[in-house]
Simulated scan of single mutants.
Amino acid sequence: MTMAAAIDYPTASTQAASRITRVDVLRDFATAEPVWRHLETADTLSTPYQRYDFQAAWQAHVGQLEGLRPFIVIAYDANDQPLLLLPLGARQENGLQVAGYLGGKHVTFNMPLWQRDFAEAATRADMEALQSGIRRHRETVDLLALARQPRHWLGIANLMAQWPSQPSTNDCPVLRLLPGASPTDHVSNSFRKRLKGKEKKYEVLPGYRYLLATRDAEIKRVLDAFFTTKPLRMAEQKLPNVFAEPGIEDFIRAACLAPRDGGRAIDIHALVCDEEVIAMFAGVADAGRFSMMFNTYTMSANAKYSPGLILMRSIIDHYAACGITSLDLGIGADDYKRMFCKDDEPIFDSFVPLTTRGKLGAMGLSSFARAKRLVKQTPALLNLAQRLRGALQR
């Protein structure tokens, strides 16, 4: 789709056909909270990354430090019922006011919270009315930069794809969990046997077990181990420690402790023994998806028997038994992800200008994103980029 499509203005006839009759833009979480929590019910379509408690924790500990101001869009119907909530934050970038999803690079998927029946039946006219409503707002921004949006969620098409879109830099490896399937349909019998042989090395350790951390003390123990070990692991890989950036640790600790029905805003899984946390994975979950956010494993001799793979098998079995239908390990092409995730979740970006000034910004961001995807999809270019990054970090 060309960028020209982004600057089309809805006509009176398309606006009249839309269920959207009002679009509000709220600039603080407290005012948005009642509608936000209403849209977290079972009749809503959204990803677990867009829960109020997750997003509020991120904004309080990270977004504010980055100069991001809430720009929360809510669309209503003629009966004053909310149809969707678009959780955005705005800031000035290169002379433009740019709004994007809250949560930064620690969020894999971005999407509005939709009233489910609206998400299933909305038309292009509805999406044009939404864009027009944002544009007419007195506190509008120049540009919407909407990254990492799934094309489908729980089998329902994401209506945001009706706006100008292009493939994101990377797709996301995903494992489909078929209802009623045998565990060996998700992790093969031969792979299970290999992992079981490795796990026997751990079973002799006092207190060895798989743990879904539910108590505050368990969560604190695992996070203390993570924030000690992860910097060492990233240094091994010559990668910058993104978890040391201002506010990130406080956000993660707050979200991991924030309660939700059936768990926490971020759930933590681990292999532990009395002596140490051997491996951990943390992510967000809802009734249909578990999505990985971050992980690490011990620096001790216990690292040599593939604890991360053993833990991943346990996590898959846990969520399959809970009826969850898909699981992902985050964006990226790491080898261990392909051991479990055989399919790809296509995701897309949208750069939507709302003002005349925003048109050039949208074209620039779109071109940069396309170039980045080209590098990631071309082995020779990717190798060159990695060598340059390594040289700059020395």
Rank of each mutant, 00 (worst) to 15 (best):
A4R: 11
A4F: 13
A6L: 08
I7F: 13
P10Q: 07
A12F: 08
S13L: 14
T14W: 01
T14C: 03
T14I: 07
S18G: 11
I20V: 12
T21C: 04
T21P: 05
V23N: 12
V23H: 11
V25Q: 09
R27W: 10
R27P: 01
A30L: 02
A30Y: 01
A32Q: 03
A32M: 02
E33F: 00
R37I: 02
L39H: 07
T41L: 02
T41C: 14
T41F: 01
D43I: 00
D43T: 10
T44V: 11
T44W: 06
S46L: 12
T47F: 00
T47G: 02
P48G: 07
Y49L: 03
Y49A: 07
D53P: 00
F54Y: 13
Q55D: 07
A56W: 10
A57C: 14
Q59L: 12
A60R: 15
A60I: 01
V62N: 11
Q64F: 05
Q64E: 14
E66M: 09
E66I: 00
L68S: 08
L68H: 03
R69C: 02
R69P: 00
P70N: 05
F71L: 00
I72H: 01
V73A: 05
V73H: 03
Y76S: 04
D77P: 06
A78C: 06
A78L: 11
Q81C: 12
P82I: 12
L83F: 11
L83K: 10
L85T: 08
L85H: 05
L86E: 04
L86R: 04
P87V: 09
L88Q: 09
G89P: 05
E93D: 12
G95R: 08
L96K: 03
A99R: 02
G100Y: 05
Y101L: 03
Y101T: 04
G103P: 01
G103Y: 06
G104Q: 09
G104E: 05
K105R: 14
K105A: 13
K105H: 15
K105N: 13
H106D: 12
H106R: 12
